[in-house]
Simulated assay, not measured.
Amino acid sequence: MSRFLTATVVGLLLAGTLALGAMAADDWPFWQRWFARVPAITGFGGNANAIPDLRSDFGGEAAPLTRRQPEPRLVAPLRQADAWMADRNSDAFLVWHDGALVFEHYYRGDAATQRPAGAMAKSLVAIMVGRAIREGAIAGLDAPVADALPEWRNDERNRIRWRDLLAMHAGLAWYRQETSPFSDFQRIIIGSDYQPRALALPAVAPPGEVFDYSAWTYDIAGLALARAGNAPYEDLVDRWLTPPLGLGPMRIYVDRDGGNVHANCCLYGRADDWVRLGALIADEWVAPRLLPDGFVAEMRKPGPDRANYGLGIWLGSPYEARRPIASTRNPYPTPVKSVIEQSEPFAADDVMIFEGVGQTKTWIIPSRRLVIVRFGSAPQDWDDAMVPNLLIRALQ
């Protein structure tokens, strides 16, 4: 081997070693995760939204739900709904009515399977804020979030209330969606400490005025909850929700071992846990024991810039044939452009929805004491009103 070739190889090895050292000093877990995502984010296959394999295990041993046979008037509609769900990439379909689970079908896995809830995790955050208020850790929905976040106390973000965070009217900026490993967007998603970037997001609109469907808003809510409750977010779930509701084992993405959870998403748990959470919202006699008086009514109030979104929950009215996720009057860039297809208005005006990913969701209809849970991927011919209206009309 010539001296020139030898020098070149040694130089490359030295450069590679220095590069690896720089990556390790920078944030080695981030680089491992980013390289695992490279094929997808550069268009060569894979999953750009793949979640790193760091999760915090919490929850408990799932308490048995009361079960009974459905009322005769529900039998045929449930059979029709089951067939419809089976033809549309469903993994699980459960129906709770009047205090009991009356139907469950697991097309893939079984009752104990931990399933990805996606953005339904945001609804859990909203419920946790209610529990924190009930427990005295937060003064109320109109209290400033800066009470828990000193980073916000000396600038215009000190006007942001818990209500603004949960309604996605906080007025905070987004990190522009980019694939570069040096971008703030990639670092906040898969970095090993996302907290500094999340809490550095500046205000770009007055709080309470502009709707923006934002993942960071709910990550920030999770961080603030942890500080207000003086414990990790997942520990607060175990303290305030797991025992009274009988929630089963759960996992959620954390940025590093012992770090912060991404409370906005990436929660895995049993399908029937969402029956329990939906029933908490649907059952007026249960909610006051765990949530402050009137909290569910506050959750159902639409925001000033989004008639279909309350506090951590989507509202079934007013009707939109194509319900957009992002605001159409957003003054800053947002990567969320999804719409939910719906052929007709809901047959009840009090429908609320925990909205997940791929049409994974929980419909809650308090007037019928009805909760419907569906897990699965998104089919081409989805109709958000189909199954709820079948069951609502059967109960009229």
Rank of each mutant, 00 (worst) to 15 (best):
P335L: 10
R55Y: 14
D219M: 05
G356Q: 12
R369G: 02
L124D: 01
A126Q: 07
D293E: 15
T334K: 14
R187C: 05
P379Q: 10
E156H: 14
G109F: 02
G358L: 05
E355G: 01
P202F: 08
A50T: 01
D184M: 13
R227P: 04
V286P: 03
T6P: 03
A50C: 02
D350E: 04
L247F: 08
R251H: 14
A146L: 08
M23A: 15
L5C: 09
L280M: 05
A221Q: 06
R368A: 13
L199S: 04
R68P: 09
L223K: 01
D272H: 14
A40Q: 04
A24V: 11
G16A: 15
L78P: 06
Q359I: 01
L54P: 04
A205W: 07
P243E: 02
L13S: 06
A282F: 07
A100Y: 05
D349P: 13
I392E: 10
I51E: 05
L223T: 01
P379H: 04
G278S: 05
L225S: 02
P249A: 13
D283F: 00
R79C: 07
L101M: 10
R134T: 07
F93Y: 12
D164L: 09
S343E: 05
F35V: 10
G191R: 10
P70D: 08
A112F: 00
A263S: 07
E234W: 14
L124A: 10
D283N: 15
P302T: 10
A279D: 09
R369F: 06
D27V: 08
G16E: 05
E156R: 15
A62W: 01
R300W: 00
V296Y: 11
A143T: 13
A173T: 04
L166I: 06
I252P: 07
W363E: 00
P232F: 12
E151P: 00
E355S: 09
Q69E: 15
R368W: 02
D219N: 12
P206G: 07
L236K: 08
D381T: 01
Q186S: 06
V210Q: 09
P150K: 08
D383Q: 02
L94P: 09
A7S: 13
A173H: 03
V9P: 01
G376T: 11
F103H: 15
V275R: 10
A19P: 00
N154A: 15
F354I: 06
A132Q: 04
I364N: 05
S367Q: 11
D57A: 15
P64W: 08
E341M: 09
